[in-house]
Nucleic acid binder design. Sequence first.
DNA 1: CTCCATACTAAGCGGTTGCTTAGAGCTAAG
DNA 2: CTTAGCTCTAAGCAACCGCTTAGTATGGAG
Lengths: 211, 211
Amino acid sequence: MTTTGLDGFALLDETWRTVTPDAARRMLIAAVQAFAGKGYHATTTRDIASLAGMSPAAVYIHYRSKEELLFNISLVGHETSLALLSSIEGEGATQRLKNAVAAFAGWHAEFHTTARVVQYELGALSPEHHAQVAELRRQIEQRMRSFIEDGVQAGVFDVPDVKGATLAVLSLCIDVARWYHPDGKRTPDEIGALYADLVLRMVRPNQLTDF
Amino acid sequence: MTTTGLDGFALLDETWRTVTPDAARRMLIAAVQAFAGKGYHATTTRDIASLAGMSPAAVYIHYRSKEELLFNISLVGHETSLALLSSIEGEGATQRLKNAVAAFAGWHAEFHTTARVVQYELGALSPEHHAQVAELRRQIEQRMRSFIEDGVQAGVFDVPDVKGATLAVLSLCIDVARWYHPDGKRTPDEIGALYADLVLRMVRPNQLTDF
DNA sequence: CTCCATACTAAGCGGTTGCTTAGAGCTAAG
DNA sequence: CTTAGCTCTAAGCAACCGCTTAGTATGGAG
């Protein structure tokens, strides 16, 4: 079969539009779909090529190996979600944390296909590529922690264990990629709003003790 | 190499001690370790056999296929965590939810090897086996939801979206299996306590509105 | 002792894997 | 028209996959 499997390409194109030439981008998008659906190891280079509507050998015109395809996806995915957290604005620590959680959780729902590869195929990267991605993950963790720390500093959050809370908030958002399904009852925006509310409840002070 | 890879067998044996004969259990434990470390598809039957200190053909004395090995792990793993949630006791809804989250999150840390296979290799099961496991997952979701519903009914929790909160709590606990590492700073018990505290904060009423 | 069931291994089968090679088709500069 | 360069394909290679087969070692029953 030589289907191009174009369903859902519109959304994926948004993330990968900077990749050229055209055939290299189609190959990347096909790889994202295949890796997300069956996992990296269960996906063959023939799967990717036929999803992109090309012959098996065409993969190697644009990419050195199957792993390099994965690395490209992982790198761009991590850079995108780091950029997302870096662009958060809002009046006050509460509003900023709310926006950050809504955006980060929402991204993992809306781009769950990419997010699944980003979050669950790290182990398939080569040691060098893995190290490069790990540095980006450290920066993402730092961004999220600073949103919480700001609120603690300002006295509007009550968080006994900031590192632990950061871990939990990131974990909560990331796991959206595992369970989210586009046919489910909740839209990505609704999930973002639900999670932002739950996180704000986690960090709010117990108001009786304010006396 | 014919190493038996016995490190960590003590803990795993606790989960799999009912499996007989001895060789079948060693094979299962080897499969858990291999699947958790590299993923189901990246693991070969030769990997499993050599981890168990046997020849490749020995796998098929005790199991029909590689997938049957995975199904056994997945089934016992799900039954174990369902039994865990079914055995929760405590005075009042708050104490019970606290104990449930601590136990469920703690289990995903302590038995992260098994939990990783249970939570991340569902897609490799055959349709029939997947359906069987999905029913257990529905029961697990129901148990956790009832802990939250009890508190809402009793008026000690304030939860606008019970299904959404249940989803988030389960998701939070399950994701522990992804990031937990035994060399990390937190013990499974500490993670259980941290998560129980965070979840209770999520469901506690805003006490100013109690007037 | 013989007999038989069980547990295991050595060898290997057919099929699939990631990747390579040789060359065809197309475009555009000279 | 010629030529060079890029993109892509048909065919296939060596290695490896899940699983099978044929046969050996062991131990208990009669």
